[in-house]
Amino acid sequence: MCALPEDALLKANNELNEVPEERAAKTESLRGKIGDLQRRDKLPQNCRTDDRMLVRFLRGNKFDVDKSLSQYTNYQNFRRKIPGLSVEDLTYDSVKEVLETGVFEIVEGKCSTGCQGIILYPPKWNMQHHKIEQIICAAFYMLEVLFEKHEDVEIHGIRLLEDFTNFSFFQQLKMEANLLTAGKPIMEFIQEVFPMRLKGVHLINEPWYVSTLIAIIKPFMKQKMRKRITYHRTNYDELNVYFSPDVLPATLGGSQSLAVPLVLQLCRD
Rank of each mutant, 00 (worst) to 15 (best):
F78W: 05
F78T: 05
G84E: 12
I119F: 07
I82V: 13
H130G: 15
R48D: 02
P83C: 03
G60D: 13
D89T: 08
I119G: 13
V65Y: 04
T113K: 10
E105C: 12
L99V: 04
L43S: 01
G60K: 06
E108R: 12
R52W: 00
D66E: 15
L99E: 13
S112E: 12
V107M: 08
W125R: 02
N46Q: 13
V103C: 15
V98C: 14
L58C: 03
L43E: 04
R80A: 05
T49W: 00
D66Y: 14
E97N: 11
G84Y: 01
P44V: 15
N74Y: 14
K96I: 02
S68E: 09
D89A: 14
L99D: 14
C47G: 00
D64F: 10
T113G: 11
H129S: 14
N61L: 09
T91I: 11
L58F: 00
G60H: 06
E105F: 00
S94F: 05
T91F: 08
H129C: 13
I106K: 15
D51N: 04
Q71Y: 01
N77E: 12
E105N: 15
K124D: 11
T49M: 01
V98E: 04
G60L: 03
Q71A: 09
E97G: 05
V87H: 13
S68K: 12
L43A: 04
L99P: 08
V87P: 06
K67P: 02
F78P: 04
Q45Y: 13
G102T: 08
V103E: 04
Q116L: 12
E108M: 03
R52Q: 01
K131G: 15
L69W: 11
V87W: 07
N46F: 13
G114F: 13
S68W: 04
K67V: 00
P44D: 01
T49G: 01
P44F: 13
F57L: 05
E105G: 11
P44K: 11
D93K: 14
Y72L: 09
N46A: 10
L120N: 14
H130Y: 15
D51Y: 00
S94M: 01
K81C: 12
Q71C: 07
E100W: 06
L99F: 13
V98Y: 03
E105H: 10
Q128K: 08
T49P: 02
Y92H: 11
E105K: 11
K131L: 09
G114Q: 12
K124N: 13
K42W: 02
E105Y: 03
P122R: 06
Y75G: 07
R59Q: 14
Q128H: 05
R52N: 01
S94T: 09
Y75K: 01
S94N: 01
P44Y: 11
F63K: 02
Y92M: 03
E105M: 10
